[in-house]
Nucleic acid binder design. Structure first.
Lengths: 165, 165
DNA sequence: TATTGTTATACTCTATAACTATA
DNA sequence: TATAGTTATAGAGTATAACAATA
């Protein structure tokens, strides 16, 4: 018999629960702010923000999906909404006829701009008010390896399914 | 004019993005594990875990809702599912005829027990593998004030809506 | 044959408002 | 009148599988 029952110690359990609760509350607040300020869901905001930051304001569907959405059809759905709202355009990729290149429109950039200040404000108020600059640095240093670890680790949990998409 | 445009510095932005991504990936993995191991959603697991930990295995709807769900009807829906699955029972509260007391059944406790080891394993592997015990302590110390702050702060964002429920 | 993306479909979850019953 | 909970209903989002087109 090996140690078939891995245990969380009290500290680990506390960290896990606090992490989930904190992000849950933050996400809920941010969702509301984005909805009220710009009629955007969080996923839609993430997609727009990525496009806004990428060179030319464009990206292929597949690259856009990365990390934002867990299924291909989910992205098609969201991109369809954004297109219908006039915030992005979709066109066949020049180099690969199979691909679709999504591009943020001027209206899309405006929308991101309209929403960002309130977004920052919510985050500052809820997350960073009780943290010193040093705390933030420390937190960054702790989260970075976790993020890297999660990105590097294929889900390999029970059954090994496909990565995402 | 006051500083109407609060800014996130680079560290803060990094912490925020890392936090959201990390919890997103973790939640997704945990969701899958709970579904596969016990056919439970995360919300359902949270509700069962609370009942399992509370004295007598019971709680009132209102108290159960706290922090798990954002609307009353959402809880009614989830409690209905759990009841249909035989994992909880619902009965009028003895002291307050308006209230409903939810109680976990033996089957409910078994289900929690069946799901917990795998749950712990996912968390250990994804979240704590890259963190030392000291790191975990530090993280706990940073998250605690944030959690307290968020709990204490009414959403008071744009419009002041009701707290939750 | 493998990859990109869309569509159809079905399902889960959530929230709002109207309603009932008890305090 | 206020609180506890349910119901009806409608909407947003997600995932799976089948499909078309290109590499």
């Amino acid at each position: 018999m090996d140690d078939s029952t891995p245990r969380l110690d009290a500290t680990q359990l506390g960290v896990y629960l606090a992490l989930v609760e904190v992000v849950d509350l933050l996400r809920h607040a941010v969702d509301q702010q984005l909805r009220e300020a710009g009629d955007l869901s969080y996923v839609q905001f993430q997609l727009l923000a990525r496009l806004n930051a990428s060179p030319g304001g464009s990206a292929r569907m597949t690259d856009l999906a990365d990390g934002v959405v867990y299924s291909r059809s989910g992205l098609t759905y969201q991109a369809g909404l954004l297109e219908k709202a006039g915030l992005v355009t979709r066109a066949p990729s020049p180099d690969d006829e199979r691909g679709v290149t999504v591009t943020i429109t001027d209206a899309g950039r405006e929308r991101v701009g309209a929403v960002l200040p309130g977004h920052a404000e919510v985050i500052l108020r809820m997350l960073f008010e009780p943290l010193s600059p040093t705390d933030a640095e420390t937190l960054a240093g702790l989260l970075e390896p976790v993020r890297a670890h999660m990105r590097a680790t294929p889900p390999r949990s029970a059954a090994t399914r496909r990565r995402r998409r």
